[in-house]
Protein backbone atom coordinates (compact mmCIF):
# COMPACT_ATOMS: atom_id res chain seq x y z
CA UNK A 1 0.00 0.00 0.00
CA UNK A 2 1.56 3.22 -1.17
CA UNK A 3 0.86 6.15 1.06
CA UNK A 4 1.45 9.65 -0.24
CA UNK A 5 2.87 11.33 2.79
CA UNK A 6 2.75 9.67 6.17
CA UNK A 7 2.55 12.21 8.96
CA UNK A 8 4.81 12.03 11.95
CA UNK A 9 2.95 11.97 15.27
CA UNK A 10 4.12 15.49 16.00
CA UNK A 11 2.82 16.75 12.66
CA UNK A 12 -0.52 15.04 13.24
CA UNK A 13 -0.68 16.72 16.64
CA UNK A 14 0.07 20.12 15.05
CA UNK A 15 -2.43 19.51 12.27
CA UNK A 16 -5.35 18.76 14.61
CA UNK A 17 -4.36 21.49 17.08
CA UNK A 18 -4.13 24.19 14.44
CA UNK A 19 -7.39 23.06 12.85
CA UNK A 20 -9.25 23.29 16.16
CA UNK A 21 -7.75 26.69 16.97
CA UNK A 22 -8.60 27.98 13.51
CA UNK A 23 -12.20 26.83 13.83
CA UNK A 24 -12.51 28.42 17.26
CA UNK A 25 -11.05 31.73 16.12
CA UNK A 26 -13.59 31.89 13.29
CA UNK A 27 -16.34 31.20 15.79
CA UNK A 28 -15.33 33.65 18.46
CA UNK A 29 -18.38 33.64 20.75
CA UNK A 30 -17.54 30.07 21.74
CA UNK A 31 -14.20 31.28 23.10
CA UNK A 32 -15.50 34.44 24.74
CA UNK A 33 -18.51 32.84 26.41
CA UNK A 34 -16.68 30.92 29.19
CA UNK A 35 -14.34 33.84 29.84
CA UNK A 36 -17.21 36.33 30.19
CA UNK A 37 -19.01 33.84 32.42
CA UNK A 38 -15.89 33.60 34.62
CA UNK A 39 -15.55 37.37 34.91
CA UNK A 40 -19.24 37.96 35.55
CA UNK A 41 -19.55 35.34 38.32
CA UNK A 42 -16.55 36.74 40.14
CA UNK A 43 -17.79 40.33 39.89
CA UNK A 44 -21.18 39.27 41.25
CA UNK A 45 -19.76 37.97 44.54
CA UNK A 46 -18.75 41.36 46.03
CA UNK A 47 -22.20 42.65 45.10
CA UNK A 48 -23.87 39.72 46.81
CA UNK A 49 -21.91 39.49 50.06
CA UNK A 50 -20.80 43.05 50.55
CA UNK A 51 -17.50 44.75 49.88
CA UNK A 52 -15.67 44.08 53.21
CA UNK A 53 -12.06 43.44 52.18
CA UNK A 54 -11.41 40.79 54.88
CA UNK A 55 -14.41 38.65 53.99
CA UNK A 56 -13.65 38.82 50.30
CA UNK A 57 -9.97 37.99 50.77
CA UNK A 58 -10.95 34.94 52.84
CA UNK A 59 -13.25 33.46 50.23
CA UNK A 60 -11.36 34.69 47.15
CA UNK A 61 -9.48 31.41 46.40
CA UNK A 62 -12.71 29.45 46.56
CA UNK A 63 -14.57 31.94 44.38
CA UNK A 64 -11.85 32.00 41.72
CA UNK A 65 -11.56 28.25 41.57
CA UNK A 66 -15.27 27.44 41.65
CA UNK A 67 -15.81 29.99 38.88
CA UNK A 68 -12.98 28.42 36.88
CA UNK A 69 -14.61 24.98 37.30
CA UNK A 70 -17.99 26.25 36.14
CA UNK A 71 -16.52 28.20 33.23
CA UNK A 72 -14.66 25.08 32.07
CA UNK A 73 -17.81 23.00 32.47
CA UNK A 74 -19.71 25.48 30.33
CA UNK A 75 -17.22 25.06 27.50
CA UNK A 76 -16.89 21.26 27.66
CA UNK A 77 -20.05 20.45 25.79
CA UNK A 78 -18.75 21.79 22.50
CA UNK A 79 -15.42 19.96 22.63
CA UNK A 80 -16.58 17.04 20.45
CA UNK A 81 -20.14 18.11 19.64
CA UNK A 82 -19.65 19.80 16.29
CA UNK A 83 -17.26 17.09 15.09
CA UNK A 84 -19.86 14.52 16.05
CA UNK A 85 -22.66 16.34 14.29
CA UNK A 86 -20.92 16.89 10.97
CA UNK A 87 -19.23 13.49 10.75
CA UNK A 88 -15.67 14.74 11.25
CA UNK A 89 -15.37 12.60 14.39
CA UNK A 90 -15.93 9.43 12.36
CA UNK A 91 -13.14 10.46 10.02
CA UNK A 92 -10.81 11.10 12.96
CA UNK A 93 -11.68 7.72 14.46
CA UNK A 94 -10.99 6.04 11.12
CA UNK A 95 -7.61 7.64 10.57
CA UNK A 96 -4.80 5.09 10.71
CA UNK A 97 -2.93 7.09 13.35
CA UNK A 98 -3.15 6.38 17.10
CA UNK A 99 -6.14 8.17 18.56
CA UNK A 100 -4.01 9.20 21.55
CA UNK A 101 -2.33 11.88 19.45
CA UNK A 102 -5.35 13.63 18.02
CA UNK A 103 -7.32 13.34 21.26
CA UNK A 104 -4.41 14.98 23.05
CA UNK A 105 -4.34 17.74 20.41
CA UNK A 106 -8.07 18.38 20.76
CA UNK A 107 -7.94 18.59 24.56
CA UNK A 108 -4.93 20.88 24.49
CA UNK A 109 -6.71 23.10 21.95
CA UNK A 110 -9.62 23.27 24.38
CA UNK A 111 -7.26 24.25 27.19
CA UNK A 112 -5.60 26.96 25.08
CA UNK A 113 -9.03 28.39 24.30
CA UNK A 114 -10.54 28.24 27.79
CA UNK A 115 -7.77 27.63 30.34
CA UNK A 116 -5.28 30.24 29.20
CA UNK A 117 -7.78 33.15 29.09
CA UNK A 118 -8.77 32.24 32.68
CA UNK A 119 -5.13 32.23 33.79
CA UNK A 120 -4.55 35.63 32.20
CA UNK A 121 -7.61 37.32 33.69
CA UNK A 122 -7.41 35.70 37.13
CA UNK A 123 -4.82 38.12 38.66
CA UNK A 124 -7.01 41.13 37.82
CA UNK A 125 -10.04 39.47 39.38
CA UNK A 126 -7.97 38.31 42.36
CA UNK A 127 -6.99 41.95 42.93
CA UNK A 128 -10.63 42.92 42.79
CA UNK A 129 -11.41 40.35 45.51
CA UNK A 130 -8.64 41.82 47.66
CA UNK A 131 -6.58 38.65 47.61
CA UNK A 132 -3.21 39.34 49.32
CA UNK A 133 -0.48 39.93 46.77
CA UNK A 134 1.56 37.00 48.20
CA UNK A 135 -1.16 34.68 46.88
CA UNK A 136 -1.07 35.98 43.33
CA UNK A 137 1.77 33.72 42.33
CA UNK A 138 0.10 30.72 43.98
CA UNK A 139 -3.14 31.49 42.11
CA UNK A 140 -1.22 31.61 38.86
CA UNK A 141 0.57 28.29 39.49
CA UNK A 142 -2.54 26.44 40.62
CA UNK A 143 -4.45 27.64 37.57
CA UNK A 144 -1.58 26.83 35.24
CA UNK A 145 -1.33 23.26 36.55
CA UNK A 146 -4.99 22.79 37.40
CA UNK A 147 -6.92 24.04 34.36
CA UNK A 148 -5.40 21.44 31.99
CA UNK A 149 -6.53 18.75 34.45
CA UNK A 150 -10.04 20.19 34.21
CA UNK A 151 -9.90 19.99 30.40
CA UNK A 152 -8.61 16.41 30.37
CA UNK A 153 -11.05 15.01 32.92
CA UNK A 154 -13.89 17.02 31.44
CA UNK A 155 -13.14 15.61 28.00
CA UNK A 156 -14.06 12.13 29.25
CA UNK A 157 -17.50 13.38 30.22
CA UNK A 158 -17.83 15.35 26.99
CA UNK A 159 -16.95 12.23 24.99
CA UNK A 160 -19.43 10.08 26.93
CA UNK A 161 -22.30 12.51 26.44
CA UNK A 162 -21.53 13.66 22.89
CA UNK A 163 -24.22 11.47 21.36
CA UNK A 164 -26.95 12.64 23.72
CA UNK A 165 -29.38 15.39 22.74
CA UNK A 166 -29.32 17.05 26.15
CA UNK A 167 -26.19 15.77 27.82
CA UNK A 168 -25.45 18.96 29.77
CA UNK A 169 -26.94 17.87 33.12
CA UNK A 170 -25.43 14.42 32.90
CA UNK A 171 -22.08 15.95 32.02
CA UNK A 172 -22.11 18.09 35.19
CA UNK A 173 -23.12 15.09 37.29
CA UNK A 174 -20.31 12.95 35.92
CA UNK A 175 -17.58 15.55 35.91
CA UNK A 176 -18.04 17.90 38.88
CA UNK A 177 -17.33 15.21 41.52
CA UNK A 178 -14.09 14.39 39.70
CA UNK A 179 -13.04 18.04 39.91
CA UNK A 180 -13.16 18.06 43.72
CA UNK A 181 -9.52 16.96 44.31
CA UNK A 182 -8.21 19.75 42.08
CA UNK A 183 -10.44 22.27 43.85
CA UNK A 184 -9.32 21.18 47.33
CA UNK A 185 -5.59 21.27 46.63
CA UNK A 186 -5.71 24.46 44.57
CA UNK A 187 -7.64 26.50 47.14
CA UNK A 188 -5.51 25.08 49.94
CA UNK A 189 -2.36 26.16 48.09
CA UNK A 190 -3.67 29.71 47.66
CA UNK A 191 -4.73 29.82 51.32
CA UNK A 192 -1.33 28.64 52.47
CA UNK A 193 0.34 31.27 50.30
CA UNK A 194 -1.76 34.05 51.82
CA UNK A 195 -0.43 33.09 55.30
CA UNK A 196 3.10 33.05 53.92
CA UNK A 197 3.35 29.26 54.26
CA UNK A 198 5.00 26.99 51.68
CA UNK A 199 2.53 25.54 49.17
CA UNK A 200 4.88 23.33 47.13
CA UNK A 201 3.21 20.17 48.41
CA UNK A 202 -0.21 21.11 47.07
CA UNK A 203 1.29 22.17 43.75
CA UNK A 204 3.13 18.86 43.53
CA UNK A 205 -0.14 16.98 43.98
CA UNK A 206 -1.87 19.06 41.30
CA UNK A 207 1.16 18.43 39.08
CA UNK A 208 0.82 14.70 39.70
CA UNK A 209 -2.87 14.91 38.81
CA UNK A 210 -1.87 16.69 35.60
CA UNK A 211 0.67 14.03 34.63
CA UNK A 212 -1.85 11.30 35.40
CA UNK A 213 -4.56 13.04 33.38
CA UNK A 214 -2.25 13.77 30.45
CA UNK A 215 -1.10 10.18 30.11
CA UNK A 216 -4.23 8.23 31.01
CA UNK A 217 -7.33 10.21 30.05
CA UNK A 218 -6.75 10.11 26.24
CA UNK A 219 -7.36 6.34 26.37
CA UNK A 220 -10.57 6.83 28.33
CA UNK A 221 -11.63 9.63 25.97
CA UNK A 222 -11.05 7.45 22.90
CA UNK A 223 -13.05 4.58 24.39
CA UNK A 224 -15.85 6.94 25.32
CA UNK A 225 -15.90 8.39 21.79
CA UNK A 226 -16.07 4.89 20.31
CA UNK A 227 -19.00 4.05 22.56
CA UNK A 228 -20.75 7.28 21.64
CA UNK A 229 -20.37 6.75 17.89
CA UNK A 230 -21.24 3.03 18.00
Amino acid sequence: MEQGNVLSYFNLFKLVLSRDLKIALRHRDDVLNPLLFFIIIITLFPLGIGPEPQTLAKIAPGIIWVSALLATLLSLDRMFKSDYQDGALEQLLLSPYPSFIWVLAKVIAHWILTGIPLIITAPVLAGMLNLPTESFLATFWTLLLGTPVLSFIGAIGAALTVGLKKGGVLLSLIILPLYIPVLIFATSAIDAASYGLPYGGQLAIIGALLVGALTLTPFAITSALKVSTN
Binding site: M1, K22, S82, E90, L94
Partner: peptide, 19 residues
Protein backbone atom coordinates in the same frame (compact mmCIF):
# COMPACT_ATOMS: atom_id res chain seq x y z
CA UNK B 1 -3.45 -1.67 8.73
CA UNK B 2 -7.14 -1.92 7.92
CA UNK B 3 -7.65 1.82 8.25
CA UNK B 4 -4.71 2.48 5.94
CA UNK B 5 -6.55 0.44 3.33
CA UNK B 6 -9.97 1.90 3.92
CA UNK B 7 -11.77 5.00 2.74
CA UNK B 8 -15.12 5.47 4.43
CA UNK B 9 -17.42 8.33 3.52
CA UNK B 10 -20.48 8.33 5.74
CA UNK B 11 -23.77 10.00 5.06
CA UNK B 12 -22.37 13.03 6.89
CA UNK B 13 -19.54 14.52 4.83
CA UNK B 14 -17.32 15.45 7.82
CA UNK B 15 -16.72 18.91 6.40
CA UNK B 16 -16.27 21.78 8.87
CA UNK B 17 -18.35 24.83 8.02
CA UNK B 18 -15.77 27.19 9.59
CA UNK B 19 -12.96 26.04 7.28
Amino acid sequence: LYRQNLLYLGHLPGVKSEL
